[in-house]
């Protein structure tokens, strides 16, 4: 077991190194940051000096090595645009994105599984048909459109919820949270639904399909033949077997919730890392872009590691002691 975890972590590090290399090599093509940093009145000497100061005159492998060296120590350099340490900027912005992602992830998983199980058990009921049809809308509408629709209905027409920003935030040990104020919570609702709706419908359809498959299995029939109640059969025996494939997809989806919060953050003017990234691209702010990409890949890799461990927790067949006697 320990062996397995160590191997997985080792693999994760390799993945991170490769992602870093790919991301880093791409930055050489997005433009020259020096152009943006110095004004019109620059001399060749100024350019050379700044280039040397930023280490951009070094060969590419040396730049990458330095980046890694610093990154391991939590130092992602200084933003070219804002002139402040990148780590500080990201730490400031990350809570907004993480809170949004957590709430919409929770929304997607809980509602997705509940609806998925419901539509699988009541396969031919009218309610299931309504839900299944409704879910098609969730899958086919683009995120920004859903955001705008929600803003129109709940902010403009009904005036129930705010249309932008995080509301009031409270600072808890350097982490600014919106969970503790009423306006903060209200502000979370629309962006969270917007961000999670697609994942929710996806999880729901997946759970439904898996559950229908599991309900056809012999062990479900045998559980019924032993006189176990429908509740035990559906929610104990069937649901647990449904979860294994669902976890894979859900894990990847959670990663993408964080990574693709950019659109939602733009629509709702949410002060998260997604907005930060968009601005960084416009200004060729390489340190911020590099740090953001590394952050996202750390999260993806971390979630995948977690998914693999969850597999083992759920399915005893993967625990390696497969000796049949």
């Amino acid at each position: 077991m320990l062996n397995y975890i160590i191997r997985r972590i080792f693999q994760s590090v390799v993945v991170l190194l490769i992602v870093g290399l790919v991301a880093f090599s791409m930055f050489r093509f997005v433009g020259d940051p020096i152009d943006n940093m110095l004004g019109q009145e620059r001399t060749q000497a100024d350019i050379e000096r700044l280039r040397a100061q930023l280490g951009l005159d070094q060969p590419f492998p040396v730049q990458y090595w330095r980046f890694l060296e610093n990154a391991v120590q939590g130092n992602f350099g200084v933003s070219y645009r804002q002139g402040r340490p990148v780590a500080e900027i990201i730490a400031e912005r990350a809570p907004a994105t993480l809170e949004l992602a957590a709430v919409s992830g929770l929304f997607a998983i809980v509602i997705g599984i509940v609806l998925g199980v419901f539509t699988a058990i009541r396969r031919d009921g009218w309610a299931s048909n309504v839900i299944m049809t409704g879910s098609l809308i969730g899958v086919s509408l683009p995120t920004f459109l859903i955001g705008i629709l929600l803003i129109y209905v709940f902010s403009v027409e009904l005036d129930l919820l705010p249309s932008f920003g995080r509301g009031d935030v409270v600072d808890v040990g350097g982490w600014s949270t919106g969970f503790l104020t009423a306006s903060g919570l209200k502000a979370l609702v629309l962006p969270a639904i917007t961000l999670g709706l697609y994942q929710m419908t996806l999880i729901m359809r997946l759970v439904r399909a898996e559950m229908l498959e599991v309900l056809r299995q012999d062990y479900i029939n045998f559980a019924r033949a032993r006189g176990l109640s429908e509740r035990v059969v559906n929610f104990r025996h069937a649901l647990k077997n449904t979860l294994v494939p669902v976890i894979t997809v859900t894990g990847l989806q959670l990663g993408s919730i964080i990574a693709f919060a950019i659109i939602t953050e733009t629509v709702f003017q949410w002060p998260g890392v997604g907005l930060l990234f968009i601005n960084a691209i416009q200004f060729v702010d390489i340190p911020v872009m590099a740090a953001y990409l590394m952050l996202i890949s750390v999260m993806f890799v971390g979630i995948n590691l977690l998914v693999d461990l969850l597999y083992v927790a759920i399915d005893p067949r993967l625990r390696g002691e497969g000796n049949t006697t």
Binding site: Q217, D218, N221, F222, K240, P316, R317
Partner: peptide, 11 residues
Amino acid sequence: FQDPLTSLNPL
């Protein structure tokens, strides 16, 4: 049931 490999819940 017929198939003992599938009539027990694996989890």
